[in-house]
Each structure stands twice: as structure tokens, then as C-alpha cells.
Design a protein around this nucleic acid. Structure first.
Length: 628
DNA sequence: GAAGGCCGG
DNA sequence: GGCCGGCCTTC
């Protein structure tokens, strides 16, 4: 996959396995035992090739369920599941002890555990201002809201960052974050072992002295270097007679870590990160009430696998020395990016299921091309992906999606659901704007899917507007809907999705758009270039103006410009033009459907867009969004 | 930029 | 399965 930067191989990547089968097994993993020198410990920017790199993945346990437990003040031992319509979307750990899983139906779960607490996700409800928890949820009149979880997720991420100064933190999903500990750990390493800063006369490329032994007490589960099988009577024998572990945790126990390998400075680095991670986890638990599971290792992919070693309020550490034996029995389809089509294609091609199986494959490149490069490395514990600091913690897209209780068959039926989705987007974006007021979704995308088909989508640029209302979004959404379904008479739409994408903080000051204030020094170019006329203004100053003539009604829009203001003025004209087009669209729509006459957009004859005028008062919250 | 696809939780 | 979100490829 090309999301992983291709690497120039240090040595022959595709040869060498045939002989290596007989040779030392560890030879496959030659990258995991680097010689660490003074240069390494004193360098600041070795990046992904830093032999002292330390990465963690921190994951909230049964996150949605934990959110509900906190919200309701439920006892930590109370079995609880979160419901979405009739299926479970989260199961807390106490409930899992009853054998309840995410795929179960509510009925079956209750059968297994009669005192199970069942909580339905929050929903937007017809006539209500905000999403809430109702007892009469109905997919015909409600739409689920995951907002509460998003907010809790942001709180956790913020607290983690706060507690780990100097670390890079990448929020990877609603319940996971990658953390790069390399920088602060290096500082602490030098602080605790100041002699490491004293470069010997032999030079900076001298290997470091032996590392001190580490007391791992309280630092988490150490994944063992040499796992040993359970005694015979406890081994789960498979049907085919083999005893290879299908589930490591269940079928293997581990011997003491005695003399299996010597401690390295990277191990010391891992232990320091484990201290920091442990403290941060405790803060999250104490301040916000969420338990987390963390994995600590040398890169993202291993950190992720390590976190799943043992779950629920734990952390685990994977030392370099333990990588080979941890990876070899691993089902490779559990590895990030191998869980999908690529993974199953590889499994099928080579009749393989574990990492160890794939290590025996000589040549993958002819079948899997570019993918084989990073697969080769991943199998050997190498992953050079960086932890990208998501400074803003703001998402680049915002999606509202609804599976329809009954399929839409007439184009006109689409407007209602688009309005529902638009309502949610309006609420969420305006909400996000409380944090960063200049948030601007560059495009609006409408997706419609029928049955199992992959679906079709339409998108369009979304104008910047301060006054982001349901109407604005729904109007643009309706337009996309018309383009998408057109006059299609035999449609059967079962799912609609409306999304903002390309969300960013607007650089062109909205002040200049809305208030005609001083031109900003933005270097941004607008996509379209309206007509540009040179001229002289009434005061005799050299000036120019931008204009646009509506092809439908002939109305002319002009925007005066002064020296150096061109780009902003073009944006303004574009905005005015878009609004005017919307007006025509709204009129057309009202004429043809005869139902949605309360369009709030009015034609602007002057390019003085202060506040959007409204034909009727702005509906508050989402109370009006569901109206017929 | 537009549409679609693959990946993940 | 439902409701997301990120990133990539192709045109």
C-alpha cells in the first residue's frame, strides 16, 4: 500500500530466504538488534530510523460502553451493553464474562445475563432540540448520534497530551491514540545516566556501554522472549492434530525471563516510556473514569499489536528481543492493513495464516507488487510510519449517515432525510466552531446507496458562510440529490450519507468576505476567475472591478477592487454568485415540488453580504428539522 | 476537483 | 451491521 513510504532496501529484499531457512532464525529479524552508539543517543532528528524510537498505542477499553457507564454512574462491575436499534455496538468487560459479544442481538444478550444493563445510543428525535436518550427509539423518526462519544474521546486525547509533554500524539480513531515518546524519553535517559553524554575518545560512533538491568515491576506485562507451550494436558489440540497456537494467550504460557538476552538501551527507553504511559493512563482513569490498554514498542504497528496482548486496564511492552517469537505465530490478518482484501488475497495465494508462514515465502513482488515491500518489512517488525501530531485534533471530514427504514423510491422523498442529515451537520459544525470559529468545510458530498451496491456520490464546493444553517446545507444537499437521482423513476435508495470534507480553518479572513474590511494578505487563489475589468473609479484612482452576469436573469454583480485586494474580492464575487445560483435553484425546487417554499435564500442584488436575511425565523436546535 | 475504493474502529 | 473517519487512485 502506498500510504507507506517506499523504502530503498538496505540489502537484497527478495533474495536470501532460501538459505536463511537453515540459518539462524533470527537472521530474518536483523533490524531489531541495532548497535546503539553515542551518536544515536545524542542525535535529535533521527526520525523513524532512531534506534531508540519508542511508540505507544493507547486504547480505551470498550469505549462506548465505558462512556455510558460514566454518564450513568454505573458500578464498574455491572454488565452493560450499548444498543443501536436492535444490535449491540459495545459490550463492557463484565458483560463479556457472560459470553456476550458485539454480534449478538439484545434478546440473546439478555438471555445470557438477565441483569444486563442495556443502554441505547443517543439519538436525534423528531421535535427535539438536541440528541438525547429516549425510551421510545424508532429508526423511522430517530437518527443515532455519536456526539457524546466524540466529546469524551476529545477529552481523553487532550488529557493524554497534557500529561505527556514533549510527546507527539496522533489520535487514530475515536478510542485510540498513537504516542511517540522518543524525545522525552531520550532526555530522561540522559538525565538518569549522565555518563551517556560523555563521548569517549574513540569517537561518537562508539557503542554505548552495557545497559543497566531493569526492574519492570509496575511497568506492565513484558512480552516474553521465549514463550513455551503449556503442559501437554492443557494444550488445545486442533482438529487436524496440530498444536500450533491459534490464540497465543490461551495456549501458551511463558517462562521467566532469565538470561534470554541482555538488556539494551532501547529496553531502558521502553521502560521509561512505560513509566510515563502508566502515569498518563492513571490520570485518564482518575480524572475521566476511563480505563485504557496500551502497547509499547519500537513502532506503530508493533505498538498496536502489543496493546492487544492483554486487554482491560493494562499495558504491555514488546522488547526488540521478543519480537520474532511474538510475531511468528501471529495471524497476519490481525496486522493493520492486512485485515482486508489484501490480507485474504495473500492468505489464499500462499495458503498461509501466520507471520511465520509468510516468512518462508521467497517472492511476493510479482503477485503483490508494491505491497510486498512493506509487507516484507512488517513481517520482520519494521515499520517506518511516523506518529503524526494532529495538532488541532480536528477532523477533516464530518459525516452524517442514515440507513433508511424503508427504501426511497421517489426522488422527492430524498429531501426529508437530507434535511435530517443537514441538521446534524449544522449542529456539529457549529459546535466545532465554538472551538475554532473559522472552520470551513470546503466541499459537501452526498452519497446514496441501494442495497449492496457500492453507491454513487455527488459533491460540490461549499461556500464559506459564517451563518451556517440547516437550510444552507439542506439546499446544497438537495441540489446534489437532484444531480444524483435526476428523474430516475425506479430508484431504491436504502442509505443516504451527507458529509463535509476538506474541513479546515479558513485562511482568507471571513471578515473580508462578510464585512468588506481591509484586504488580507492571503496568497490563496480562488478556483474560478470571474471576469476582470480594468477601470477608473469616481475619484480618479486607478481601480478595477470584477463582475458577473447571471445567465438566467441577466442580473449583473460587480465588486470593486483596490490594489492588492484581488483574491479576496474574487472570493466575494464567487460567494455572491453561488448564493444567487442557489436562489434560482430554490425557486425551481419550490416550483416543481410545490412543497418546500420556505427557502431562506434570497437574491442579493448588492454584494454586501452582511447577515443572511431570513424569510422565517431560524429554527432553533433541530426541532424543525424533521418537519414534513 | 470529482467519483470511487480500501482501510480501520 | 450501522455509523462513522482517513487516505488513496483514477480520471
Amino acid at each position: 500500500m502506498s500510504s507507506v513510504p517506499p523504502l530503498s532496501p538496505r540489502k537484497s529484499l527478495w533474495k536470501g530466504k532460501a538459505k536463511a531457512i537453515q540459518a539462524e532464525e533470527e537472521e530474518e529479524f536483523d533490524d531489531i538488534n541495532p548497535v546503539i552508539t553515542y551518536r544515536h543517543i545524542l542525535s535529535q532528528n533521527l526520525g523513524v530510523r532512531d534506534p531508540l524510537r519508542v511508540i505507544a498505542l493507547c486504547d480505551s477499553d470498550a469505549f462506548y460502553a465505558a462512556c455510558e457507564m460514566n454518564r450513568l454512574g454505573v458500578d464498574k462491575d455491572q454488565p452493560l451493553v450499548v444498543l443501536q436499534w436492535d444490535s449491540l455496538i459495545a459490550v463492557n468487560y463484565p458483560a463479556r464474562t457472560y459470553g456476550i459479544s458485539r454480534m449478538d442481538k439484545k434478546k440473546d444478550a439478555l438471555k445470557r445475563c438477565p441483569h444486563l444493563k442495556v443502554v441505547h445510543v443517543a439519538t436525534y428525535k423528531e421535535g427535539e432540540k438536541e440528541p438525547g436518550y429516549w425510551d421510545d427509539v424508532d429508526t423511522n423518526t430517530h437518527k443515532v448520534s455519536l456526539d457524546y462519544y466524540r466529546r469524551e474521546s476529545m477529552k481523553i486525547a487532550a488529557l493524554i497530551k497534557e500529561n505527556l509533554p514533549g510527546c507527539e500524539v496522533e489520535k487514530a480513531s475515536i478510542d485510540e491514540a498513537f504516542i511517540d515518546f522518543t524525545k522525552p524519553v531520550r532526555e530522561m535517559l540522559l538525565q538518569r545516566h549522565p555518563y551517556l553524554a560523555q563521548v569517549p575518545p574513540e569517537g561518537v560512533d562508539t557503542p554505548l556501554p552495557p545497559a543497566p538491568s531493569i526492574n519492570w515491576d509496575g511497568l506492565g506485562n513484558l512480552i516474553p522472549v521465549n514463550p513455551v507451550p503449556l503442559p501437554e494436558d492443557k494444550v488445545q489440540t486442533r482438529e487436524d492434530g496440530g498444536t500450533r497456537a491459534i490464540n497465543r494467550e490461551k495456549t501458551l504460557v511463558y517462562e521467566e525471563e532469565i538470561g534470554d538476552s541482555h538488556t539494551t538501551w532501547h529496553d531502558v527507553a521502553l521502560s521509561i516510556a512505560a513509566e510515563l504511559m502508566s502515569a498518563a493512563k492513571e490520570q485518564v482513569r482518575a480524572k475521566l473514569g476511563y480505563t485504557t490498554s496500551a502497547g509499547i514498542s519500537r513502532n506503530k504497528f508493533l505498538a498496536k499489536l502489543t496493546a492487544s496482548y492483554k486487554k482491560f486496564n493494562t499495558q504491555s511492552v514488546l522488547r526488540n528481543a521478543a519480537i520474532p517469537n511474538y510475531l511468528k505465530p501471529m495471524q497476519f490478518q490481525k496486522i493493520r492493513f492486512l485485515g482486508g482484501k489484501l490480507g485474504s488475497a495473500i492468505a489464499k495465494e500462499y495458503d498461509a495464516s501466520t507471520v511465520g508462514d509468510l516468512l518462508l515465502i521467497d517472492e511476493m513482488q510479482s503477485k503483490f507488487g508494491e505491497n510486498s515491500i512493506w509487507v516484507y518489512e512488517i513481517l520482520r517488525g519494521v515499520d517506518r510510519n511516523e506518529v503524526k501530531d494532529k495538532g488541532s485534533a480536528l477532523n477533516k471530514s464530518m459525516l452524517a449517515s442514515k440507513n433508511l427504514p424503508k427504501p426511497i423510491t421517489k426522488p422527492s422523498e430524498g429531501y426529508h432525510w437530507i434535511r435530517v442529515l443537514a441538521a446534524e451537520l449544522a449542529l456539529r459544525l457549529n459546535d466545532a466552531r465554538e472551538m475554532s470559529p473559522n472552520l470551513w468545510p470546503k466541499t459537501l458530498v452526498l452519497h446514496a446507496r441501494k442495497g449492496y451496491e457500492s453507491g454513487r456520490s455527488k459533491q460540490a464546493a461549499f461556500p464559506f458562510t459564517r451563518d451556517l444553517t440547516v437550510d444552507t446545507i439542506a439546499l446544497a444537499g438537495d441540489k446534489l440529490w437532484n444531480e444524483l437521482v435526476g428523474s430516475n423513476t425506479a430508484l431504491k435508495v436504502t442509505n443516504v450519507q451527507l458529509a463535509f470534507t476538506g474541513i479546515d480553518t479558513a485562511e482568507i479572513g471571513q471578515s473580508s468576505i462578510e464585512g468588506f474590511l481591509k484586504p488580507s494578505s492571503s496568497k490563496k487563489r480562488s478556483r474560478e476567475s470571474p471576469e476582470h475589468h480594468e477601470g477608473t473609479d469616481s475619484l480618479g484612482n486607478s481601480a478595477s472591478e470584477l463582475s458577473h452576469t447571471c445567465p438566467r436573469c441577466g442580473k449583473i454583480f460587480t465588486v470593486p477592487t483596490v490594489e492588492g485586494s484581488g483574491d479576496d474580492q474574487q472570493d466575494i464575487l464567487l460567494k455572491v454568485k453561488t448564493e444567487h445560483d442557489d436562489f434560482h435553484f430554490a425557486q425551481d425546487l419550490a416550483r416543481q415540488s410545490g412543497q418546500r417554499t420556505a427557502i431562506t435564500v434570497s437574491p442579493k442584488t448588492k454584494a454586501k453580504p452582511t447577515k443572511r436575511r431570513k424569510v422565517q425565523p431560524e429554527p432553533k436546535g433541530i426541532e424543525k428539522f424533521f418537519r414534513k
